[in-house]
Design a protein around this nucleic acid. Structure first.
Length: 214
DNA sequence: AATGCGATCAACCGCGTCCAA
DNA sequence: CTTGGACGCGGTTGATCGCAT
């Protein structure tokens, strides 16, 4: 169907972002917060579509991004999460503070796939005779590789909108961020010393969900 | 020293889902 | 209840960088 392009105003910039564009975007979001991506570009004086702005912010400009080499722990965590969740990069990213779904996706495709193949593991099915830790095992997700629609229990996959399960202010206190996944993922990303869980899974406007609070 | 190839990262595209009117 | 708009996700592509020949 003819879904209208996200930006029909013909003249939007594409391709790599310039420093000035970055600065504008950051400045705007600092003073106004995230959200309303559709209207943000014009408000911020950017000739970009909202989508592009959002992506740039999420993947590159956010202040809480780590941006660096993945540690072995992170590697393993990603592998395990992928075994559980499949290509749910945003969910996986939610378990890795400071990492973005795009980054993880790229990292998976470039490094981890190769790494698994080298170990003789099928990166998709994670086949390997009993290699998976207890994690995957038991009762978590019925068929991870089968790409179940994680619909039922609101895994926040829906774009993190409806289920803003922010650890901080959200829903029922003390609830695990992924109610579905009672993960025992005790990998402590070195960069997050005492790290409480990542601020928010929902990637929603900070103000909107209050995740940044505190 | 130059060229080619492969790897990596950043960005775009299309689709699905959710919410509000 | 239906429709339209907006957001977010996952897949894919393009550009750039580094290494090998």
């Amino acid at each position: 169907m003819g879904r209208s392009p996200c930006c029909e105003k013909g003249h939007t910039n594409k391709g790599a972002w310039t420093k000035e564009e970055d600065e504008r975007l950051v400045a705007y979001i600092r003073s106004h917060g995230e959200g309303c991506w559709r209207s943000l570009p014009s408000a911020a004086g950017l000739l970009r579509c909202g989508k592009s702005c959002r992506l740039r912010w999420m993947n590159y400009l956010r202040p809480d991004l780590k941006r660096g080499n993945f540690t072995d722990d992170e590697d393993e965590l990603i592998i395990r999460l992928h075994a559980l969740l499949g290509n749910k990069w945003s969910l996986i990213a939610g378990q890795l503070p400071g990492r973005t779904d795009n980054e993880i996706k790229n990292y998976w495709n470039t490094h981890i796939k190769r790494k698994l193949l080298a170990r003789g593991i099928d990166p998709h099915a994670h086949h390997r005779p009993q290699a998976l830790h207890h994690v995957a095992a038991a009762a978590l997700v019925p068929a991870p590789a089968a790409k179940p629609k994680p619909k039922p229990a609101e895994s926040s996959d829906d774009g993190g909108r409806s289920s803003c399960s922010c650890s901080g202010s959200g829903s029922s206190a003390g609830e695990p961020r992924c109610p579905d996944l009672n993960l025992d993922l005790s990998v402590g990303p070195p960069d997050a010393p005492t790290s409480p869980p990542p601020p928010c899974l929902c990637h929603r406007a900070w103000e909107a969900c209050g995740c940044q609070a505190g």
